Computed example of a mutant assay.
Amino acid sequence: MRSPQLLIVGITTLITTSVHASIIQNQPRNGVIAFDTPLDVSTDLSKRQVGEHDYIFPVSNFPKLTIPIGSNKDVVQLSIDTGSWLTQVPDVASNCTECLLPNGKLGLYDANKSTTAVKTGQTLKSDFAPTHYYHGKGVVDDIWFAPNFKIPGTLFNDVQEISPLWHEGILGLSKPPKGSENQNIVWNAYKAGLISKPIFAITQRNESSNSLQLFLGGHSKSQMTEDYTWTSIENKNFAGHIDFININGAEIKINATVTFDTGNYGVSVSQEVYDAIINSLPYDPLKSRGIISYDSIKDRSVTVSIYGKNYSVPLKAFFGPGCDPGVRYCDIVVYPNPAWNWGSSFNRFLNLALNYDNGSYIGIAGWKPSNTNDVVAF
Results as ranks from 00 to 15, higher is better:
residue 207 E to N: 09
residue 136 G to N: 03
residue 291 I to N: 03
residue 343 G to V: 04
residue 292 I to F: 02
residue 229 T to N: 11
residue 126 S to T: 05
residue 186 V to T: 12
residue 220 S to A: 09
residue 275 D to A: 10
residue 253 K to H: 13
residue 322 G to K: 00
residue 346 F to S: 07
residue 85 W to F: 13
residue 3 S to K: 02
residue 12 T to M: 15
residue 278 I to W: 11
residue 170 I to P: 02
residue 117 A to E: 08
residue 200 F to G: 00
residue 206 N to G: 11
residue 99 C to Q: 00
residue 370 S to I: 04
residue 367 W to K: 01
residue 353 A to L: 04
residue 283 Y to V: 08
residue 271 Q to A: 15
residue 2 R to S: 10
residue 329 Y to W: 04
residue 16 T to V: 13
residue 65 L to T: 10
residue 327 V to W: 03
residue 118 V to Q: 08
residue 373 N to E: 13
residue 237 N to K: 09
residue 347 N to I: 13
residue 264 N to E: 11
residue 121 G to Y: 06
residue 139 V to D: 03
residue 2 R to H: 14
residue 322 G to Y: 01
residue 20 H to E: 07
residue 78 L to W: 05
residue 187 W to I: 15
residue 85 W to Y: 15
residue 171 L to A: 06
residue 6 L to Q: 09
residue 140 V to W: 02
residue 53 H to W: 13
residue 238 F to Y: 06
residue 128 F to D: 02
residue 308 G to I: 11
residue 145 F to A: 04
residue 62 F to D: 06
residue 78 L to H: 06
residue 172 G to V: 02
residue 202 I to D: 04
residue 288 S to E: 12
residue 226 E to L: 10
residue 139 V to C: 04
residue 206 N to V: 08
residue 363 G to R: 00
residue 92 V to K: 00
residue 340 W to E: 12
residue 264 N to G: 09
residue 44 D to W: 12
residue 364 I to A: 00
